[in-house]
Amino acid sequence: MKTQEELTEIVRDHFSDMGEIATLYVQVYESSLESLVGGVIFEDGRHYTFVYENEDLVYE
């Protein structure tokens, strides 16, 4: 089982391919040991929310 830090790094690596990240945040109250819920804001102003669970990243 991966730690929350490892899950965060996986998500950061994925989004870094889309541009320069200004902020990546995790909603700790919605996340667990198996899933990571949060959002990412890019330097150009784009903002996505995401759920990473079971090695699957869903964002909008």
Rank of each mutant, 00 (worst) to 15 (best):
E55Y: 10
E30M: 07
E43K: 14
Y59Q: 04
E20M: 13
V26C: 05
S32C: 07
E5Q: 09
L57I: 10
G45Y: 03
Y59W: 10
E53T: 14
S32W: 08
Y48L: 10
F42L: 09
Q4V: 10
E5Y: 10
F50Y: 13
Y59L: 11
D13K: 14
D56K: 14
E20F: 12
G19D: 02
V28K: 14
V37T: 12
D13L: 10
S31Y: 08
Y48T: 02
L36Q: 02
R46F: 04
N54Q: 14
L24C: 03
V11F: 03
V28P: 07
R46H: 07
F42G: 00
Q4D: 04
H47Q: 12
T49R: 14
E55S: 14
M1T: 14
T49A: 08
V40E: 00
E6D: 05
Y48S: 01
T23Y: 09
Y25D: 04
T49Y: 08
D44L: 01
M18Y: 11
T3L: 05
V28Y: 09
Y52F: 13
G45S: 05
Y25G: 02
R46D: 04
S16A: 12
M18K: 10
G38P: 00
Q27S: 15
E55R: 11
R12L: 09
T3Y: 04
E34C: 06
R12Y: 08
D56R: 11
G39I: 06
E5R: 05
Y25P: 00
E30G: 10
F15S: 01
I41C: 06
R12C: 05
L36A: 04
L57A: 03
R46M: 09
V51C: 06
D56C: 10
V58A: 15
E60V: 14
I41H: 10
T23Q: 12
D13F: 12
V11I: 15
Y29V: 06
E30N: 10
L57Y: 04
E60R: 14
G45R: 03
D13V: 15
V37I: 09
F42P: 00
V58G: 07
T49I: 06
L36S: 02
S32M: 13
E43S: 11
D44K: 01
L24I: 15
G45A: 04
D17Q: 13
E20Y: 11
I10F: 12
L24N: 00
E34L: 11
L33N: 13
A22V: 08
E20D: 13
H47T: 10
Q4I: 08
T23K: 10
H14D: 03
L33S: 12
G38A: 01
L24E: 01
E34K: 10
D56S: 15
H14M: 14
G38T: 01
Q4H: 05
E60I: 15
E53D: 09
G39S: 08
L7A: 04
T49M: 07
E30R: 03
D13E: 11
Y25E: 05
F15P: 00
E34H: 14
D17W: 13
V28Q: 14
I41V: 06
H14I: 08
H47G: 05
E53F: 15
M1H: 11
E9H: 14
E6G: 05
L7H: 03
L36Y: 04
I21V: 09
V40D: 00
L24V: 10
E53A: 14
E34N: 13
T3H: 05
L36C: 04
T23A: 12
E9N: 11
R46I: 06
Q4N: 05
V40H: 00
M18L: 09
T3S: 11
V11K: 00
L7K: 03
L24F: 14
D17R: 15
L24W: 05
Y59T: 09
L7S: 02
Y29M: 06
D13M: 13
I21E: 02
E34F: 07
I41E: 05
G19S: 03
T23I: 07
Y59V: 15
D44G: 03
H47I: 14
Y48A: 03
V51A: 09
K2Y: 06
E30W: 05
V37G: 10
D44T: 03
T49V: 09
E6C: 06
T3M: 04
R46Y: 04
Y29T: 08
V37R: 13
M18C: 06
D56W: 15
V28F: 07
K2Q: 08
R46N: 06
V11Y: 01
K2H: 13
R12P: 01
V28E: 15
L33W: 10
L7Q: 04
I41M: 14
G39T: 10
D44V: 01
S16M: 12
I41G: 03
G45P: 00
A22T: 13
F42A: 01
R46W: 04
S31L: 11
S31A: 12
A22I: 08
S31V: 11
V37E: 08
I10K: 15
V51M: 10
Q4K: 12
Y59N: 02
R12H: 09
V26M: 04
F15Q: 00
R46P: 03
E5K: 08
S16H: 13
E6I: 08
I10H: 10
E34M: 10
G39Q: 05
Y48G: 02
L33D: 12
G38C: 01
E6Y: 09
V51D: 03
Y59G: 03
E34G: 11
Y29P: 06
L36I: 11
H14C: 06
Y29K: 08
T8H: 06
V40L: 05
E43N: 15
M1Q: 13
Q4R: 06
E34R: 08
D13S: 14
E55Q: 13
S32L: 11
S35H: 11
G45V: 01
F42R: 00
R46A: 07
R12M: 12
Q4E: 06
I21N: 03
T8F: 09
V11C: 04
L36T: 03
E6R: 07
T3G: 11
V58L: 11
Y25R: 03
L57K: 02
T49N: 07
T3K: 06
H14N: 10
V40Q: 00
S32H: 11
E20Q: 13
L24G: 00
Q4P: 11
G38S: 00
D13Y: 15
L7D: 01
H14G: 05
E55N: 15
R12I: 09
A22K: 15
V37N: 07
V58C: 08
F15N: 01
I21P: 02
V37L: 07
Q4M: 13
Q4Y: 12
V26I: 15
G45W: 03
L36W: 05
Y59D: 02
N54W: 08
F15L: 09
M1C: 09
E9T: 14
E53R: 12
L57G: 01
M18W: 14
G19L: 02
V28N: 13
T23W: 06
Q27A: 11
G39M: 06
T23D: 08
K2L: 07
Y29S: 10
L24D: 01
I10G: 04
E55M: 11
F50E: 00
L24H: 02
E43P: 04
T8W: 08
I10P: 02
A22H: 12
G38W: 02
E30V: 10
H14W: 14
H47M: 12
Y59C: 05
Y48I: 12
H47N: 06
T8C: 06
V40M: 02
L24R: 00
F50A: 00
S16W: 09
E53I: 12
I10Y: 07
Y59P: 03
Q4F: 08
E43Q: 12
D56H: 13
D44Q: 01
V26E: 02
E34T: 10
M1Y: 11
T8E: 15
E55F: 12
T49K: 15
N54R: 14
Y59M: 15
G38F: 03
G19T: 02
Y29N: 09
R12T: 06
E53Y: 12
S31H: 15
I10E: 08
T3V: 04
E20R: 13
E30T: 14
E30Y: 04
Y25H: 04
T23E: 08
L36F: 13
Y29Q: 11
M18R: 06
T49D: 04
M18P: 01
G38H: 01
V28W: 06
E53V: 14
E30P: 05
H47R: 12
V51G: 03
Q27H: 15
Q4L: 12
Y48M: 07
D17Y: 13
S35Q: 14
E43R: 14
Y52L: 09
S32N: 13
E53W: 09
V26A: 04
G19H: 02
E55H: 13
D13C: 07
E60D: 09
S32R: 06
Y29F: 13
F15D: 00
V58S: 15
A22L: 10
K2T: 08
H47A: 11
